[in-house]
């Protein structure tokens, strides 16, 4: 499907240097995978490409490190922006905060597809079947 806005107005920039020097990789809290910060398709990698787990460190702006929680955030559902971009909705296990993040180019496609099919897995509500 063609993108409705093929060229973004402002290209994504990498964040400025952080005071704590994190190196070039972080370790996932879910599956302990070493993940490089460089991600294809996005300048803000914030979740593990293998298990999609994230950490509650950012506030409203990606990379601002405003959240004090530091809890583990698990992928809750998928949302689609009007331009066709998939967003992962993360929910924090410690404080129940929700956040939406774009998928990266190297995210595990099987896990993403399982999450997209989750509404149709166990039991579709009866009235939903009648509406179809």
């Amino acid at each position: 499907m063609p993108r409705r806005h093929p060229v973004r107005g402002v290209p994504q920039r990498a964040k400025d240097k952080r005071r704590d020097n994190p190196g070039d990789a972080f370790r996932c809290v879910g599956c302990r995978l070493d993940v490089p910060f460089h991600a294809p398709g996005t300048a803000h990698r914030n979740h593990c490409p293998n298990c999609l787990t994230s950490l509650h460190v950012d506030g409203r702006i990606p990379g601002d490190r405003r959240a004090r929680c530091r809890g583990r955030m698990v992928a809750l559902s998928l949302s689609v922006r009007p331009d066709g971009e998939w967003m992962i909705i993360h929910s924090c296990l410690a404080c129940d905060e929700l956040s939406a993040n774009r998928v990266a180019g190297d995210d595990n496609a099987l896990v993403l597809l399982r999450m997209a099919l989750r509404p149709f897995g166990a039991r579709l509500p009866q009235r939903a079947l009648l509406a179809l």
């Binding site: 949302s79 689609v80 066709g84 971009e85 099919l117 509404p119 149709f120 509406a131 179809l132």
Partner: peptide
């Protein structure tokens, strides 16, 4: 239910990778 199911199938209608 129509809006609910439409939202549930929307990721499958616009996949970022070939299914």
């Amino acid at each position: 239910q129509l809006i609910l199911v439409r939202m549930a199938v929307r990721p499958l209608a616009q996949p970022p990778f070939p299914l």
